[in-house]
């Protein structure tokens, strides 16, 4: 018998099994790192670890919802790049900050809506659709900038990513609020609860009267909006836009979501798990630098972690599908 997150009750609180394992891993690695290097356990270092993982976290949260729906979104990195370019170019041309952000997020939502429309209504495989969007969005970002960096952004805009409260960047608070809200919604909000049904068995969900297409489309729009939000934070923090922003981000987002308990076969996913997984990966990266590990080994280790996570997913899936 397999325990899966059900409708919550007292015995199954926010944490499911995967989250507990991840939390323990984080604890073990933290203790090891604080013994091995004095630089690790400082509020400053931890603040920057969390700051650096914000973009990955936002995208991994979006990816969690898409995976939950038995989909996949390979275009998030490119959508980040496109949103970054569009927003910063508008700012460079003197657009008001809210307008530039609004239009930037609008572009990302549009990318998500196109993905969602093809997947949910035209029933084309999400892998194919989002692979196409990955190439198209990156291509548009490239052509718009010809490979130029976009700079000269207004200070008020930079403050979004660079401003701090109690020495912690605003965007960290915003990301944490997003985590809490999404965790609550995933437990309690009807459309997201219905996403669990859709991801588990789309045909049964349709015959159960669930709005499969609409919710699926919504999932893709949400995922792209999270990538777009990451773009706003990234461009404001780094004071620039660049067409290569977000390159390869889709794989990190998928890896984190799967490590956090989402399945490539749909129907499962946890906000807390994903958040812990992103944090775990960021800690490992941080530990690597602090312990002067070689960059080559770092790539190998990160790849290895992803392979293990996917193997666990495949194993769990086999287990689940067997009966």
């Amino acid at each position: 018998m397999i325990k899966l997150p059900g409708l919550p009750d007292k015995s199954k609180a926010l944490l499911n099994d995967r989250s507990v394992i991840l939390a323990l891993l984080i604890l073990v690695i933290s203790i090891a790192l604080s013994l091995l290097t004095p630089a690790f356990l400082s509020s400053r270092n931890l603040t920057f670890v969390v700051t650096g993982m914000t973009y990955d976290l936002l995208m991994a949260l979006g990816m969690t919802v898409v995976l939950l729906l038995w989909g996949i979104d390979l275009s998030v990195g490119s959508v980040l790049g496109l949103t970054a370019v569009v927003t910063t170019m508008l700012l460079q041309d003197g657009a008001a900050i809210p307008l530039a952000i609004g239009l930037g997020l609008g572009v990302s939502a549009l990318c998500g809506a196109i993905n969602g429309f093809f997947v949910a209504y035209l029933k084309i495989a999400p892998f194919i659709v989002t692979l196409g969007m990955m190439s198209v969005a990156r291509g548009i970002a490239t052509v718009l900038t010809s490979g130029y960096f976009v700079s000269g952004l207004p200070d008020a805009y930079k403050a979004i990513g660079q401003g701090r409260l109690f020495n912690v960047p605003y965007m960290v608070y915003i990301a944490l609020v997003a985590v809490v809200i999404l965790a609550l919604l995933l437990r309690n909000w009807r459309p997201l609860r219905e996403a669990f049904y859709i991801g588990t068995n789309p045909e049964a969900a349709r015959l159960t009267g669930i709005r499969v297409a609409m919710i699926t489309m919504g999932g893709y729009v949400f995922c792209s909006l999270m990538a777009g939000s990451a773009a706003i934070f990234m461009t404001s923090r780094l004071s620039m836009g660049f067409f290569q922003f977000g390159l390869g981000a889709e794989l990190k987002a998928i890896a984190a979501a799967v490590i956090g308990g989402a399945s490539l076969r749909g129907g499962t996913g946890s906000v807390i798990g994903t958040t812990l997984a992103v944090f775990l990966l960021a800690l490992i990266n941080n530990g690597f630098v602090l312990l002067r590990g070689s960059p080559n080994a770092q790539n190998v280790i990160m790849g290895g972690i992803l392979v293990v996570a996917i193997m666990i997913d495949a194993y769990r899936r086999r287990d689940r599908d067997e009966d």
């Binding site: 630089a39 270092n45 920057f48 670890v49 700051t51 650096g52 973009y55 990234m234 922003f245 602090l290």
Partner: peptide
Amino acid sequence: GRVDGAETAITAMLQA
């Protein structure tokens, strides 16, 4: 290969 990746890695390196 990324600007944000460089920020995170170099921040950690300078602390260590």
